[in-house]
């Protein structure tokens, strides 16, 4: 059963197209991971779902309701934890939770009981009555998460919840998310941390330039690629022409799948095998054509490989590429309401 359906969402910021016919289905009770590099459209998707932003076109269905038309009702059923921690530094953590409880119209006894539970669950008791301006990044993130959970939302939307966090805070948040999932809360988690999505999500989608480029369970996506991932270099510093020649040679070896040149990693070649014996055939083929192997490494396929296969670059490379073109000031203005 689906809790959320995003249908052909389009959104542009001036000339920049943030979402391009993005379609996504989130099953009820799942912990759904949205993976993609910064600037891929994850935050825009979440803001539209949370009724903070109207799409240029497309539909948002939440629990069978049109979220664009019944926004107030939908808001009461979801909890949103934005990428930027949003707290009032003058208030104490407890005052901030009480404030949010009142904005969700919770009865006082229930609100205070909920706050007590969240303080305990998120390990906030030692500092919750201090002004939140004195909190560390991890404390602020935990408090922010608590505000999103205060009203027991059907859907918890988390935008990059563990960016820049210390290990303790990250571990507490991961444990809480697992517990919430086991209790039946649907969670939509956006992240560019591969291991976070891999560890936590039971369904996921990879987003790139405003589109979903792959979806399924993390295992399904990785298994589609093969059992073994191979990274091969014929020289320390190769070039595109040489990489292309090697790619064509390897492509003809039986048992080799999805050969991709990684332009960002010295034109190394990435491919997948089901049978480890195929590596011998690859070596023979290259040697017969006069190529020496500089490095060859084997590993289990990761979600980064899924992204690499779909886009020709790793998530980190995609982010580095985006960093030079992003106008963070402009984006901050766009996210302002």
């Amino acid at each position: 059963m689906l809790l959320v359906e995003l249908r052909e969402l389009n959104k542009s910021y001036g000339p920049v197209k943030a979402l391009s016919n993005l379609t996504l289905e989130i099953p009820k009770g799942s912990l759904f991971g949205l993976l993609g590099p910064n600037g891929s459209g994850k935050s825009t998707t979440l803001r539209i779902l949370c009724t903070l932003l109207a799409p240029d076109s497309g539909e948002v269905i939440f629990a069978g309701q049109n979220a664009l038309k019944n926004s107030r009702e939908v808001r009461s059923k979801l909890g949103y934890v934005a990428q930027e921690v949003a707290i009032d530094k003058i208030l104490t953590g407890r005052e901030l939770l009480q404030f949010h409880g009142d904005l969700y119209h919770l009865r006082r006894e229930y609100r205070d009981d909920r706050i007590k539970k969240l303080i305990e669950c998120l390990g906030m008791s030692k500092w919750i009555d201090r002004r939140s301006g004195s909190y560390s990044g991890g404390m602020r993130r935990r408090l922010d998460l608590a505000t999103g959970l205060l009203h027991e939302p059907q859907l918890l939307v988390l935008d990059e919840p563990t960016v820049g966090l210390d290990i303790e805070s990250r571990s507490i948040i991961w444990s809480l998310l697992k517990e919430l999932r086991s209790q039946g809360t649907t969670i939509l988690l956006s992240s560019h941390y591969l291991e976070e999505i891999d560890e936590l999500s039971d369904q996921m989608a990879i987003v790139d330039v405003g589109k979903v480029i792959a979806k399924g369970t993390p295992e399904q996506l990785k298994n589609k690629l093969g059992n073994i991932r191979v990274t091969l270099k014929v020289q320390e510093f190769s070039n595109l022409g040489e990489g292309e020649r090697v790619r064509q040679l390897i492509n003809h070896v039986d048992g080799v799948n999805d050969v991709v040149i990684n332009n960002f990693q010295g034109f190394s070649l990435n491919f997948f095998l089901d049978d480890p014996a195929v590596i011998r055939l690859v070596r023979d083929k290259l040697e017969s054509e006069g190529f020496e192997i500089f490095t060859l490494s084997e590993s289990r396929p990761s979600l980064d490989d899924v992204y690499l296969q779909a886009t020709g670059k790793t998530i980190m490379d995609a982010e580095l590429e985006v960093v030079s073109t992003r106008d963070l000031k402009k984006e901050a203005k766009q996210s302002m309401r």
Binding site: C50, T51, L52, R72, E73, R75, S76, L78, Y80, A82, E84, V85, A86, I87, D88, H100, L103, Y104, H105, T147, A332, S335, M336, R337
Partner: peptide
Amino acid sequence: DREFGFLNRLLVAPLH
């Protein structure tokens, strides 16, 4: 509040 993202938290609440 707008500039620090706090307004988003107000607006995502189901204010009457």
